[in-house]
Design a protein around this nucleic acid. Structure first.
Length: 184
DNA sequence: GAAGTGATATCCT
DNA sequence: GGATATCACTTCG
């Protein structure tokens, strides 16, 4: 239990993604168990932002692991990624769904009493994550990932959602039968 | 099922 | 330097 060490993130992106299931994302008063993630690699993954090259927007993905990569999509929604791989290697894990654990009342207020965390955009709104958290260190800051001793059950591997290229790659991981995933 | 939203990247002048 | 095409989604009809 406790905050995950940086070594946890300095590994193959797919391994990090799988191991993140069951861990807990904490931001201030709110916390949620990670139940669904997607892996985005560097080279060879056309769906990843990093595949378009190193830009001011994507530079964090190429930086040291254990940091947050937050980006604004479709004008209104932020998506939260966790940087993996050793520094210099591109790779990140997109958090798609959480199971709310703490600060649920706060989330309900922010979300208008609707579904809380079953989607990337909703997830960030519920936890209050914004692009101001871009580049935040997840091993030290108010935004962090902890191990609360949960053992994820069976893990389902499937294709990623909502993308147009490399969509057939089995890089989405979620906890089987969990009602909080974005798509059963 | 369709539209809407704003930052980025990639063309154009 | 300016315009437009793109986008890993959500909400509303």
């Amino acid at each position: 239990m406790g905050i995950l060490p940086r070594d946890f993130y300095a590994r193959n992106t797919v391994e990090v993604a799988r191991d993140l299931l069951g861990k807990v994302l904490v931001h201030g008063e709110t916390a949620g168990r990670i139940v669904e993630v997607e892996a985005y690699l560097g080279s060879g993954d056309e769906a990843a932002h990093s595949a378009r090259g190193l830009t001011p927007r994507t530079r964090v993905i190429f930086g040291p692991p254990g940091h947050a990569y937050v980006y604004l999509i479709y004008g209104m929604y932020e998506c939260l990624n966790i940087v993996a791989e050793p520094e210099g290697q591109a790779g990140c894990v997109l958090l798609r769904a959480l199971e709310p654990l703490a600060g649920i009342e706060v989330m309900k207020q922010r979300r208008g009493n609707k579904a809380l965390c079953n989607g990337p955009g909703k997830l960030t709104r519920a936890l209050g994550v914004t692009w101001e958290n871009y580049g935040a260190d997840l091993t030290t800051g108010p935004l962090r990932v902890e191990d609360w001793g949960y053992q994820p059950g069976e893990i389902t591997v499937s294709a990623r959602i909502g993308i147009s290229v490399s969509a057939e790659l089995p890089l989405r991981f979620h906890i089987s039968g969990n009602p909080h995933v974005s798509r059963p």
